[in-house]
Structure formats: C-alpha cells, structure tokens
C-alpha cells in the first residue's frame, strides 16, 4: 500500500465518521438553542437601527459588524435561526407525515390508489423542483406559510416513494401476513406492524433532506419571496448584503451565508452518520 493511502486511512480513522457526526450534533444543538432563545441571546435588538453605526465592520462592539441601517448582524443572524430552521423543519415534518401516509396507502393497497398517487408524484417530479416551488408561492401568495407549503410539496415525492417501496416489500413478509391472517384490518396492520419498521429509515431520509429544505426556503426568500424585510432571515440578509459586495462590505452577506452553510452542512453530516449507523453497507 502506498504511503498516501496509509496516511489517508489514518486521517479517515482520526476524523472517523462517528466523531464528525458528534460535532454536527453539537453545532446543531447550538443552532437549535439560537432558534429557541434567539431574542434573549442576541446582544442587540435585531430590528433596532443605529444611524451612528451604519456599515461598521466587525469589531468588539459588533462581532459581525452592522448593516446599512446600523442593525447588529450577529443579533440578526442569531434571531433568524428560528425562522430558517422553523420553515425547513415544518416543511420536512409535513412532507414526512403526508408522504408516509400516501406512500403507505399506495404500497399497501396497490391498484388504483397506487396508480393515482404514483402519477401525482411523477407529475411533481416532472418539474425542476425549485421552479415548481416558485410557481406555487407565486400562485398561493407571497407568505412564509406558502414557502413552507411549497417546500413541503417539492419534498413529498421522496418520502412517498420511499414509504411506498418499503410498505410494498413488508406487506408480503411473514409477520405482516400473520397479522392479516389473524383478522386485523388494514389500518391496525399498517400502524402496528409496518410503519414502526420503516420509521428509522425514513428518519435518515428526513435528516438528509433537511439541508436541502433549508436551501430551498432560503433560496425562495433570497429572490424576495415569502419573508419581508426587515424580518431577519438568512436568505434575505444575504440578498440585502449582496448590493455591498462591489464596495467591499463583505460582512453584510458572509455571516448570514455562513450560518446557512453551517446549518446545511450539519444536517448533511447528521444524515450521513445516521445512515451509516442504520446500514453500514450503503456507505458511498
């Protein structure tokens, strides 16, 4: 074996996936604390303007600097965690539940239900997903709720197809067959015997999906949909900071952008870690 390979293996072990997952969990906890107690933690009021401290670079007073209206960027980034994570988590939870329900019905009953639900999901997947989300928000109206709804819809096919496949396979397995023979009706069989067995894999799917949901929601607010200024939100903050790039005020967009990257990266790591835990063979 070459020396590069040995070195690589050692590094691989030293920063083993599990330890990396722990780091991701720790950072996520910090972000969740920000989301829960953001207003209490923030050093300033995120909406308070200060005409004497416009566009001040990062300093002891303002760790992340201030924006064009003199608002403290650190406070805004911290407070925004609630909205950004909130939008993504609610969208993922909604599509998780709805996708599981639709997928279970399609997979368990097959036939027409399966065909209709499958067709529906195929239709969603026939769009470039971010474009579909834009169209939905444009149609339903420009609000945070509709951003959540749009993100939910474009995530739906992943959960639905996954649940359908798993339910379909498990339907034929011995223990389910036995429960059915025992005279159990469809719903109890699904709820008691099938769904508990596919939940872990669905959870992995969900955490892998979270990062993407965050990117989508932030992308929509970056182009001016949903969240309205002066509400602190990472996507819109990046968008507001963008105009100052040419004059070099980097802190206006770098910090909120970095918060986004951190959140997405942690969810991706967590998802990878959970997947390895659940099924070490699927590592790629």
């Amino acid at each position: 074996m070459s020396r590069a390979a040995t070195l690589g293996r050692n590094i691989g072990h030293a920063f083993g996936e599990n330890r990396l997952t722990l780091v991701a969990v720790a950072i996520l906890l910090v972000l969740l604390v920000c989301a829960a107690f953001g207003t209490a933690l923030a050093p300033y009021d995120p909406l308070m303007t200060d005409s004497t401290a416009k566009m001040s670079p990062p300093s002891g007073l303002h760790l992340f600097g201030t924006d064009a209206l003199g608002r403290d960027i650190l406070s805004r980034v911290v407070v925004a965690a609630r909205l950004d994570l909130g939008m993504a988590i609610s969208a993922v939870v909604l599509s998780f539940v709805l996708g599981l329900a639709l997928g279970a019905v399609a997979g368990y009953f097959g036939g027409w239900a399966d065909r209709i639900i499958g067709r529906l999901m195929d239709t969603i997947m026939a769009f470039p997903l971010f474009v579909l989300a834009m169209g939905i928000v444009a149609a339903l109206g420009n609000s945070v709720l509709n951003i959540i709804l749009a993100t939910m819809i474009i995530n739906l096919p992943f959960y639905c197809r996954f649940a359908r496949g798993e339910v379909n396979v498990r339907r034929e397995m011995g223990y389910v067959e036995a429960a059915r023979m025992g005279g159990n009706r469809a719903l109890p069989v699904l709820v008691n015997h099938i769904i508990p067995n596919i939940l872990p894999a669905m959870m992995v799917q969900a955490s892998l999906n979270m990062g993407w949901a965050i990117l989508n929601a932030a992308g929509l607010s970056f182009i001016g949909l949903g969240v309205r200024p002066p509400t602190p939100e990472w996507g819109i903050m990046v968008s507001e900071g963008a105009s100052f790039i040419i004059s070099g005020e980097w802190w206006t967009f770098v910090f909120p952008g970095a918060a986004l990257v951190l959140a997405v990266f942690c969810f991706n790591l967590l998802g990878d870690g959970l997947r390895d835990l659940l099924d070490p063979r699927r590592r790629v």
């Binding site: 990062g211 990117l215 932030a218 992308g219 970056f222 996507g235 990046v238 968008s239 900071g241 963008a242 790039i245 070099g248 980097w250 967009f253 770098v254 952008g257 986004l260 990257v261 997405v264 990266f265 991706n268 790591l269 990878d272």
Partner: peptide, 17 residues
C-alpha cells in the same frame, strides 16, 4: 460534501467578492 452545503446564491456572491 462541503460544496453540497453551499447555497448557490451564496457561492455566487462569494466568488464575485
């Protein structure tokens, strides 16, 4: 994996900067 965590619009702005 790091590249996958960067929002496209943020990467765009960083590169411009």
């Amino acid at each position: 994996s790091v590249a996958a965590a960067f929002p496209t619009f943020f990467v765009g702005l960083l590169l411009v900067y």
